[in-house]
Amino acid sequence: MNNPKTLPGWVKPALELGPIVAFFAAYLLLKDRTFIIGGREYEGFIVVTAGFIPLILICTGILWRLTGKLSKMQIVTAVLITVFGGLSVWLNDDRFFKMKPTLIYLIFGGLLGIGLLRGQSWLKLVMEEAVPLDDAGWMKLTKRVCAFFLILAALNELVWRTQSTEAWVWFKTFGLTAALFAFFMTQGKLFQEHGIEKKEDGGA
């Protein structure tokens, strides 16, 4: 039986965040340029998107190879990036790629909502190992995460439909990431009230 692989602490964040940082840097470098490829004119954003798709797939594949597993969110994110990024490149239309965060948050917010209607915390299924909580804590956290994801979906729609591409790239790279970080930082009281001790396997 294969044991879970232990990686240095920086590897997973580097593989998950590295492509996003690379996308942002490449966009800043190429945003004002246009490229003629196959007789068609493409803006820098579309070219950067075309490079981002294989990069995220390669990093996701490396992560799976190193850890032996991927979360459902990582799989769905990679699929949506491929589909909607691919549509943006194929149709030379940046709107499809900008819709991708909206769909990700709607899908996961909707799934959590379905679980709540069934009286279940589906968030617990994917985060139980990382965040040990009692059942009441999981239900509270799931309701909050569900609402938060739906708010982020609406916010992404508002930004990409009303702001420039550059403003959306800044929002996508830093705004959404900061919002997720701030959200979980504000859940400290819930973690404190509903946290449970992890059981140690075997003695020291």
Score class of each variant (00 low, 15 high):
Val11His: 12
Ala130Trp: 01
Leu123Cys: 06
Thr60Phe: 12
Glu200Ser: 11
Leu176Tyr: 04
Leu176Trp: 02
Pro132Glu: 08
Ala147Trp: 11
Gly113Arg: 04
Asn2Phe: 07
Phe171Asp: 00
Leu150Trp: 13
Ala182Thr: 09
Asp32Leu: 07
Pro101Gly: 12
Trp122Gly: 01
Val76Ile: 13
Pro19Asp: 08
Phe24Ser: 07
Ile36His: 05
Glu197Gln: 15
Gly51Leu: 11
Gly85Ile: 06
Lys199Ser: 09
Leu111Cys: 00
Ile58Cys: 03
Ser164Trp: 11
Ile20Gly: 02
Val159Glu: 13
Tyr27Thr: 05
Thr177Leu: 12
Trp138Thr: 00
Phe149Arg: 00
Val79Ala: 13
Pro19Gly: 10
Val79Met: 07
Leu70Tyr: 08
Met73Ile: 14
Leu155Ile: 04
Asp134Ala: 08
Thr67Trp: 04
Gly195His: 04
Pro54Gln: 06
Gly137Leu: 02
Gly9Met: 13
Asn2Ile: 09
Leu57Gln: 14
Ala167Gln: 06
Thr34Gln: 14
Thr34Leu: 00
Leu112Ala: 07
Gln192Ala: 15
Phe171Lys: 02
Lys143Asn: 05
Asp134Cys: 07
Lys98Thr: 01
Thr82Trp: 04
Pro13Cys: 10
Ile75Met: 10
Ile107Gln: 00
Thr142Leu: 04
Thr6Glu: 14
Ala25His: 04
Lys12Ile: 15
